[in-house]
């Protein structure tokens, strides 16, 4: 599928693991990403879901958007709970108390639940080599509690706990490189994805589930509420993030890097930043700093892919 601007419903799997009617905000990129992930994963899955937006908006009584066995964990323990589920399935199948149906376990969490409070549990699960797919839906802040910065919040972004003002430039630190941390565990499959590239994302989810052992997919999920962007721009913003090199799409199979969407030349980061309220305070110098960083990181990534 070369032309990523085409999205044809009839060429995607008809299964909908994530039902409509949930209470996500208008233009929620994460809900779209979850829908694509569950579409790709099919029906034979069990989901462990951390506390966060997706848990809250998808499970308000009396309804649930989840059409598979689904467990809400805490904030910090998703990967550990998923480890338990996966191990239990293995034991039951080994003892013949459950037919081997190839059921896959998917752990889902946001960027806070992955790169901050859940990092220890994730590292443990990857190191123990559980056969599970961990998907981080990264909307770049704690959106569920009202837009607080996380270690995945990009440099310069204004949040309620990294407010831009006279004494503060917004987020002072650079976004934590979670995929690199996952790669460092020597697991069979790591990838980045974005809901604005649906076929690329679904392919990666399928690959992640197919490997024997742990897989990690980091999905940029546009959040109009937290990014202060227009809800109708969510898909567009995802593309701009990729086209500007801010969030490159690649995969790492058995340690080998490969860009799945190779952009050349990159758009200026300004195209991506300028439509988001969280970046509106940025000075030209800060934009230049961000551009320099993005250019450098993209070059390094290309070298890894060579």
């Amino acid at each position: 599928m070369k032309n990523y601007s085409i999205y044809a419903a009839r060429v995607t799997p008809p299964v909908e693991g994530f039902a409509p009617g949930h209470r996500a905000c208008i233009g929620c990129g994460e809900a779209l990403a979850v829908r694509l992930a569950t579409k790709a994963a099919g029906e034979n899955i069990i989901v462990a879901n951390a506390t966060g937006c997706m848990e809250v908006v998808s499970t308000q009584l009396p309804a649930s958007a989840w059409r598979m066995p689904w467990i809400h964990t805490l904030f910090e323990n998703t990967a550990a709970v998923a480890s338990g589920v996966e191990s239990a399935l293995k034991v039951l199948e080994r003892k013949g108390r459950r037919p081997a149906k190839g059921t896959k376990v998917i752990a889902m969490a946001g960027d806070g639940g992955t790169s901050d409070i859940g990092l220890q549990a994730l590292s443990g699960a990857l190191e123990r080599y559980h056969d599970l797919l961990y998907i981080c839906f990264d909307n770049e802040a704690y959106m569920n509690t009202g837009i607080q910065r996380s270690s995945s919040t990009p440099f310069g972004a204004s949040t309620t706990t990294s407010p831009a003002g006279k004494k503060s430039i917004g987020q002072r630190t650079w976004k934590k490189n979670m995929p690199a941390i996952a790669v460092a565990h020597n697991i069979p499959y790591v990838a980045t994805a974005c809901h604005s590239y649906p076929f690329d994302m679904m392919d990666k989810v399928k690959k992640g589930l197919a490997v024997n052992g742990p897989a990690y997919i980091h999905v940029l999920s546009v959040c109009p509420t937290g990014w202060r962007s227009a809800p109708d721009l969510s898909v567009r913003l995802g593309r701009l993030a990729v086209e500007s090199g801010v969030f490159p799409l690649y995969e790492v199979e058995d340690g080998k890097y490969k860009l799945t969407v190779d952009i050349s030349p990159l758009r200026p980061v300004q195209d991506y930043l300028s439509t988001q309220g969280r970046f509106r305070h940025l000075s030209d110098d800060m934009v230049k700093e961000i551009q320099a960083r993005v250019t450098k990181e993209y070059k390094l990534l290309k070298e890894k892919c060579a």
């Binding site: 806070g112 901050d116 409070i117 009202g146 607080q148 706990t161 407010p163």
Partner: peptide, 14 residues
């Protein structure tokens, strides 16, 4: 660390 309903204390302090 953000947590409802104490987040506003952190926000105000930040």
């Amino acid at each position: 660390y953000p947590i409802t309903p104490a987040t506003e204390i952190a926000e105000h302090m930040s």
